[in-house]
């Protein structure tokens, strides 16, 4: 009897949730745990990982050179986020308020680049902005400049690249939030004597603030980690936290230190998400 009962209730659960649980365990939980353990390991003189508990990796993270890069990375992420928000909000508003056929076109303009490998698109920017790139050639041809201007290899280029790659992550949650806003709310506001600006700050923004939050989180956090953007467009002059991590695993060959950095980045991410939740953010619009 009890055996029969076990089968009846457990088998469907195992069959449906089982594969996903296994997948998550193997590809998310165990690697994460591995990184966590690694972050407390030491290395010997040949840079081999030895399983000997130490807090040295975390202490090393407080190195002044690192601190400078954290600040730089946060600034880059901040400006990339601000840039995305300023461009993304009006754009998302336009998509959600326009007629259907144009809506599809605008939506596709965000989604289709999203399907293309971002590495390739970042190289595209390099071709466009480079010393012999299209922009410089066009400006030279128009006699606006005499010699090519160096657009690349600075923090501005990295901010631009981050904003460009992550733009859809800003637009999509904003679009979802604005789409939910009832059109008659805008009419009521105008009816009661509010001009466009007053309506925006009193009615539209407060009701779409969850979209703003989730968009910002979804741009800000990856901006800390997308090292290839900083590599390709920043040319090593605008490292982000992602570059530090990448270097420890590659040329630096200091896996425990890289692991400690990763753990800190994950902790910061969780903290931001928690903050977002505290502010009344809706987890669904984060894709959680």
């Amino acid at each position: 009897m009890s055996k029969h009962k076990f089968r009846a209730s457990t088998l469907p659960v195992l069959a449906t949730v089982g594969p996903v649980s296994l997948w998550l365990a193997f590809f998310v939980a165990i690697p994460l745990l591995y990184v966590l353990v690694m972050s407390f390991c030491s290395i010997d003189e040949n840079y081999n990982v030895v399983f000997q508990f130490t807090l040295a990796n975390y202490r090393n993270l407080l190195d002044v050179n690192y601190l400078q890069i954290y600040v730089q990375s946060i600034l880059i992420a901040f400006f990339a986020t601000a840039f995305c928000l300023v461009l993304g909000y009006p754009f998302a508003f336009l998509i959600s308020r326009t007629f259907q056929s144009r809506k599809t076109i605008l939506y596709m303009m965000v989604i289709i680049p999203f399907w293309t490998n971002s590495l390739i698109r970042i190289y595209g920017w390099r071709t466009f902005l480079g010393a012999s790139g299209w922009l410089n050639r066009a400006l030279t041809a128009l006699h606006l400049i005499d010699s090519p201007v160096e657009f690349l290899f600075n923090r501005g280029a990295t901010v631009l690249g981050m904003a460009y790659v992550l733009f859809p992550f800003m637009v999509l949650p904003l679009y979802t939030a604005i789409e939910k806003l009832d059109q008659s709310q805008l009419e009521v506001s105008a009816d009661l004597g509010a001009r466009g600006g007053a309506t925006f700050f009193n009615v539209v923004l407060p009701q779409t603030v969850s979209g703003v939050f989730s968009g910002c989180i979804m741009v800000f956090i990856p901006s800390l980690g997308y090292f290839y953007v900083a590599d390709i467009l920043g040319g090593g002059n605008s490292d982000v936290i992602g570059n530090l991590i990448e270097r420890q695993f590659q040329s630096g060959n200091n896996w425990p230190l890289g692991a400690a950095l990763s753990i800190i980045l994950i902790a910061v991410t969780l903290l931001l998400v928690k903050l977002y939740q505290k502010c009344g953010g809706d987890m669904q619009s984060l894709g959680v």
Binding site: S184, Q185, E187, A190, D191, Q207
Partner: peptide, 30 residues
């Protein structure tokens, strides 16, 4: 005349109350 310049107010079919404002906030808006 724009809607905000008219001495005319509307009660909408859907009410369209501002969900993020209290009753007081809604009524005080105008």
């Amino acid at each position: 005349k724009e809607p905000y310049e008219r001495d005319v107010n509307t009660v909408f079919q859907s009410y369209a109350l501002f969900p993020h404002m209290s009753v007081f906030g809604n009524i005080a808006y105008g």
